[in-house]
Write a protein that binds this DNA or RNA. Structure first.
Lengths: 237, 237
DNA sequence: CGTAGTTACGTACACCGTACGTAATGCGCT
DNA sequence: AGCGCATTACGTACGGTGTACGTAACTACG
């Protein structure tokens, strides 16, 4: 009567080691690391149960002893890289700390370009996510606001960073599975866009693109976005 | 020498009707509508080339005459529902118009819960997306700012709305493919979270959850988020 | 010490995206 | 007018996916 549970499971609530049987050959961390390694090197779509099992050196179905569903594997991956979040001593300047946190998150997502895609489908309360959240709240101690407001701030900052990185990486990530390069694809899309705009049907879009000759300074855009979000929560501003 | 193009393609740049052969049996809109219908009714994962072809009543491989890759089908879907965006006469009050646009986007995403998942992987310049963007820029005419800033505003508002709806729908969307209900899953996850917090390892999280007895007013959270984003761009504020 | 529950894992199934080949179709050209 | 050929239609097939199920080896608890 082993059977699969017909009742919801949170993988984190499951003990790593059950009392009874032979001791597991791998830890949850081993599995998460293997999956992360594959995703980093070959993209998220390369992460299959078979591939992860092969990376670990075990049979495919053995993985299901550790991870009941593939989605739980994703949850393990997100938590694993969430552990890379740097946790520093709050400086007392909550704005500076939040900017630092946002840069940290951006770095994390650039190191693991598959993260934005998973973020939108994964429940946000894995162990390492909790530690990170608690740390952000600690940084926000100097801000005079309810915890509810502080949670909203963190959520909004994460949203903006996630979307920013997702856009930044979208083309590159897609190019991984296509027979042409990111630059080629971008060129074709810009050409199409230019054609549409040249019809005169979108006068303001035309003005927008005419406005800034030269490439946009994405770094400045990011920085401005952060400041604006923080402004929205700053009683001083 | 038919062959597949080894050069980047934007599906929008392809003419719907080629000059030479028999006339196509379906329009791009037919195909997009079929896919949208399936995704709305059975979830995005039910949208397969076979399933869409069946819905249209044609052979699976015939679809590839219209849509070179499955990703292009996604692009068609996003554009199709983007056409549902209401385009009104700008009121002169850009904040009010932006709030209205945000509510519209939220409604769109609630009607098509698979949209947030696709938004992060789809290039944002389909025909209907262009119309919507142009309309937003028109609403922002009264705002004294560069077009670059206005584009940043629209992008940020869309990010926040997307993430908000994604979180709102995440559990429900996942429950679609799982053997238990959204409520059951949520209960288990809340229980786990409660257990973690009860350890005392996350004092501020504990305070946050203790702070508001009763369920959070998500509507108010959404409204506040919008106002804060707009504040970040309002020279008056 | 037996036994119940766990680990390991091979096999099998239904489904996926899509490459390829072939037959029918109808526009553009001479 | 009629030939040529690009395009449409679509069946078949391949290599992949997640995972249900059955079986054998193993170990902690009663």
């Amino acid at each position: 009567m082993a059977g699969r549970a017909a009742v919801p499971e949170v993988i984190w609530a499951r003990p790593e080691r059950a009392g009874r049987g032979p001791k597991p050959a791998y830890s949850r961390a081993d599995i998460a690391d293997a999956a992360v390694r594959i995703a980093d090197a070959e993209g998220l779509d390369a992460v299959s149960m078979r591939r992860v099992a092969a990376e670990l050196g075990c049979g495919t179905m053995s993985l299901y002893n550790y991870v009941p569903r593939k989605e739980d594997l994703y949850e393990l991956m997100v938590d694993a890289v969430s552990g890379e979040h740097e946790l520093w001593e709050p400086s007392g300047d909550w704005r500076a700390d939040m900017v630092r946190a946002a840069h940290g998150t951006r770095g994390l997502m650039r190191r693991h370009p598959w993260l934005p895609r998973l973020m939108s489908s994964i429940y946000g309360f894995s162990p390492n996510a909790l530690r990170y959240l608690e740390h952000c709240l600690a940084c926000l101690d100097p801000l005079e606001a309810s915890y509810g407001t502080k949670m909203e701030l963190v959520a909004m900052l994460n949203s903006v960073v996630t979307m920013y990185v997702a856009n930044e990486l979208a083309a590159a990530e897609r190019a991984r599975s296509l027979p042409w390069s990111e630059a080629e694809e971008n060129a074709v899309r810009i050409a199409y866009l230019g054609g549409r705009i040249a019809t005169g049907a979108y006068p303001r879009m035309a003005a927008a693109f005419a406005e800034d000759a030269g490439p946009i300074d994405l770094e400045a855009v990011f920085e401005r976005a952060l400041e604006r979000v923080l402004d929205g929560f700053d009683p001083q501003a």
